[in-house]
Computed example of a mutant assay.
Amino acid sequence: MTEGADDGARTAFRRGLRLGIPFAVVGFLLSLSFGVLARQAGFSTTQAIVTAVIVFAGSAQFAMLSVITVGGGIPAALTAASLMNSRFLAMGVALAPSLPGGPLKRAAQGQTVVDASWALANRGDGTFDRWLLFGTTLPQYVSWTLGCVVGAVFGDALGDTHRLGLDAIYPVFFLSLLIAELRDPASRWVAAGGGLLALALVPIAPPGVPILAASAVALFGLVRKPS
């Protein structure tokens, strides 16, 4: 990497850190809610925290938790989590050309993908700023871990998450990302189609299926996008 490129990477990374802070605040509250609910569902403090550290995906963690809460087994919980994370297939396909190195190196860099970081790193021309992606994800990962620690350790003192309004944060978070995509002419119709399909399936489909269907729409839109 040349000196100019190195300076550009540092600048993008620092910008990503700044952009990631608001999402990190939201992530802290979401993860805190997960920690509380996981303890109420029978997770040990360690199990709740390790789940947050390894999975680092709100939709997957809450889907898995909802299955376990109603008596589902581990295979069913893992299936629900996988369905909820299926959107990362389309996101990974779009991101891959912007990541250097072989398959293993790209896979390692891809671990930094979360919804907000992916959207912010999108340059709008089919390419992504990977250093901005890395910088945006870092504060979110730290706050996500800390939020779960606080929720798991002090959950009894925090009380009912519905009473505190924490259950409303997650859908509002994804709605804000959808609105941002709707403002982009290049992704507007794909975002609208995926969002409407997911909304229509929520009342009738099992957890995770609406996200899977929306991801299929996004992947189709990516394949059909003119070069």
Rank of each mutant, 00 (worst) to 15 (best):
Thr2Leu: 05
Gly4Ala: 15
Gly4Val: 10
Asp6Met: 13
Ala12His: 12
Phe13Ile: 02
Phe13Gly: 03
Arg18Gln: 15
Val25Leu: 15
Gly27Ile: 12
Phe28His: 06
Leu29Arg: 02
Leu29Met: 13
Leu30Tyr: 04
Leu30Ser: 00
Ser33Asn: 14
Phe34Cys: 03
Val36Cys: 02
Val36Gln: 01
Ala38Pro: 05
Phe43Lys: 05
Ile49His: 08
Val55His: 01
Ser59Ala: 15
Ser59His: 04
Ser59Ile: 01
Ala63Arg: 00
Ile68Glu: 00
Ile68Met: 09
Val70Asn: 11
Gly71Ile: 05
Gly72Ile: 04
Gly72Trp: 03
Ala76Thr: 09
Leu78Pro: 02
Leu78Trp: 05
Ser82Trp: 13
Met84Tyr: 04
Met84Thr: 10
Asn85Met: 05
Ala90Pro: 08
Ala96His: 11
Pro97Tyr: 11
Ser98Asp: 06
Gly101Cys: 10
Arg106Trp: 12
Ala107Phe: 14
Ala107Cys: 05
Ala108Asp: 04
Gln109Tyr: 15
Asp115Asn: 11
Ser117Lys: 05
Trp118Ser: 00
Ala121Thr: 06
Asn122Tyr: 15
Asp125Leu: 08
Arg130Gln: 14
Trp131Asp: 13
Leu132Gln: 14
Phe134Met: 10
Thr136Ile: 00
Thr136Cys: 09
Gln140Tyr: 12
Tyr141Asp: 04
Ser143Gln: 09
Thr145Leu: 04
Gly147Phe: 10
Val149Asn: 06
Val150Lys: 07
Gly151Ala: 09
Val153Trp: 08
Phe154Lys: 09
Asp160Trp: 05
Asp160Val: 01
Leu164Pro: 06
Asp167Arg: 09
Ala168His: 09
Tyr170His: 12
Tyr170Pro: 00
Phe173Lys: 11
Leu178Tyr: 07
Ile179His: 11
Ala180Trp: 09
Ala180Thr: 13
Ala180Phe: 08
Arg183Asn: 05
Ala192Leu: 15
Ala192Asp: 04
Gly193Leu: 01
Gly195Thr: 03
Leu196Thr: 09
Leu197Arg: 03
Leu201Lys: 07
Leu201Tyr: 10
Ala205Gly: 03
Ala205Asp: 02
Pro207Phe: 12
Leu212His: 13
Ala214Phe: 08
Lys225Gln: 12
Ser227Ile: 03
